[in-house]
Write a protein that binds this DNA or RNA. Structure first.
Lengths: 247, 247
DNA sequence: CGTTTAATTGAAAGCAGTCAAACTATGTGG
DNA sequence: CCACATAGTTTGACTGCTTTCAATTAAACG
């Protein structure tokens, strides 16, 4: 448990800044949060469905995803976690996890004791606000996913997920139009979209053939962002991102 | 705007009690919240996608649902609101609504100014907690819906929604096993489940034929709760309801 | 009691799933 | 550096759940 003057929690700050304003004092207070750093290899569970933890985990580098499993053993990915995200914010106040969190790539994770987070939130209104706003923006993403899976066909659905991922990465400093690495296999994409890996493969190929996306190994580029966004029925409004002058 | 000694907000209290504990003082403070009562006929919009309000709305009687619309005009219901629910809790901190809220039946709704709610939350930690827990329990329901729509077939999906609705009503004092009135048309059910009304009709009939549910007009009874819950792959854990001695 | 809204039913079409095999990367140890 | 193993992707043929379209019946309503 380190209390040192590291800035390893800087990504937690920028994660919160995506949705809310924080003063320099607030930011400094977050950076001072007690925490321990852990590394997880790819495919490792950070949180297990049903677990009760006394800490929250923040991704500092790498990607992870949350998923649930039906009684029949089918998996559904319910969210993709990018650096800066508190992966188990739900548990901040709930008594147990209702889904698992698993790494998509090797991850560096900071563990912050819930107690410290709560104390900080009660001491600093702006931070409590930022946490609530983050949780509510996350809920908005869930709503969009419900619509995406419930009412859009496979092609639109996949395109929408790609756009969302790009838009969220964009906020964390990765420019749009630039290639980004999609850390999910087609099977994981299918599990996130309510599709099979086979159909993801076919549909993705259709998007490539139509020149809407370019693939290079795991890297993805959008040569025509506007065309893809139109095809995806994508509008970043639901992400509730605030427009920042680069912090 | 009434400040009187009414107990019209009692349902707001019991809504919050579903997920959190509140002292008598906390409860009294909620009942004293300034608010105005409004009545809405069936099919009326309480919140419009994109709106920015300075108040939150609590359902006192009747049912409502939140929905979004794709670019193609397809509708997706993202949640069903029952008495006691703050229908636009998301907006408590977000700057605009990302989905619409429409009444399913005639509704009595209390409007509480956001400012008053925020003041109360900052004065009383337990109330702030209860609001956060409510929001997080709502997020958990979203996650379950994503899995329900993404990974379960029509029959299981419908059964699951029926179980969830019953379980949530149960907390508000309606005993399980008793018939309850499902206020949604089959078209609305379809919009909530990512199905067409036609297929809802067929599948619902299958459940009736198998003796898992009994329909009487809009009324629904579950003669064999356990069998239905098994068929629905339903486990109320994700609702994050706390077991109360009847308040 | 007519009018509107909701539910039911049938037949046909289609999107996505399933199964299986081939192919391509990626990675490891000799 | 190659051989082999493993994980992931692609492809084809076939199946099937759900949709679509249309018509009918039933319920709700003023």
């Amino acid at each position: 448990m380190s209390n040192a003057l590291t800035n390893s929690l800087a990504l937690m700050v920028s994660g919160l800044l995506a949705h809310a304003q924080l003063s320099d004092l607030d930011r400094a207070a977050i950076l001072r949060l007690p925490h321990s750093i852990r590394f997880f290899e790819r495919g490792i569970y950070i949180v297990l469905d049903g677990d009760a933890f006394d800490h929250c985990s923040v991704i500092l580098s790498g990607f992870a995803f949350s998923h649930k499993t039906t009684g029949e053993g089918l998996r559904q990915v319910v969210s993709v976690q990018i650096p800066g995200k508190i992966v188990d914010l739900q548990q901040f106040r709930l008594s147990f996890a209702d889904c698992s969190v698993q790494t998509l790539t090797r991850c560096e994770v900071a563990r912050v004791p819930k107690v410290a987070l709560r104390t900080l939130a009660s001491d600093r209104v702006a931070i409590a606000d930022a946490l609530i706003v983050s949780a509510m923006a996350e809920a908005s993403i869930y709503r969009e996913w419900i619509m995406n899976i419930g009412r859009r066909d496979a092609r639109t659905r996949i395109a929408h997920l790609l756009c969302e991922f790009a838009a969220r990465l964009d906020v964390q400093g990765i420019a749009p139009g630039q290639p980004y690495e999609l850390p999910m296999t087609q099977e994981q994409l299918g599990d996130a979209l309510g599709l099979t890996a086979v159909h993801v493969s076919r549909t993705l190929k259709g998007l490539v053939n139509d020149g809407l996306i370019v693939q290079d190994r795991r890297g993805i580029t959008f040569p025509k962002w506007d065309a893809l966004a139109a095809e995806a029925d994508f509008n970043r409004r639901y992400l509730h991102l605030i427009e920042h002058p680069a912090s």
